[in-house]
Amino acid sequence: MDAYWQHFPHEADIGVAGVAPELAAAFEQAALGLIAVICEPQRVRALSTVDFICSAPDKELLLVDWLNALIFEMATRHMLFSRFEVQLEGTQLHARAWGEVVDVARHQPTVEVKGATYTELKVFQQPDGWWRAQCVVDV
């Protein structure tokens, strides 16, 4: 089985989760889940890159920081992303995201995300050894 992302329900908004054998890959999948709230990730071409550095006191806050950094760059650059590479050293994250400028006709974006929240925020190793990184995002 490959690493994957999924959405889970929240009454007002939506939860995003990334699941993967490695924690860094779970963070990559959570990012894809975030994009999938906005549009279908496969519609977004990987034409240009943005680099990220985040640090936080623990893994859970780091996930929120990572998703919020993506939300900030998407908002200010008017971009969407579709591919991610994440490297983790303790609670410091280095990442690169690939994407392109929003094209409303082609991407058909549904909703902008206001922020990643601490609601249902969990980063943990499942009994099968895979990592799950999840939180609710406010739309």
Partner: peptide
């Protein structure tokens, strides 16, 4: 709009990190 969202994001984190120093127990980080 984005300004309010970013203020919420930044101060939420700052308050979560600072809460123990202020002696505030948060039953939910949010």
């Amino acid at each position: 709009r984005g300004l309010g969202h970013q203020i919420g994001t930044e101060y939420l984190k700052e308050m979560v990190v600072a809460a123990p120093a202020y002696g505030i127990h948060l039953p939910d980080r949010e």
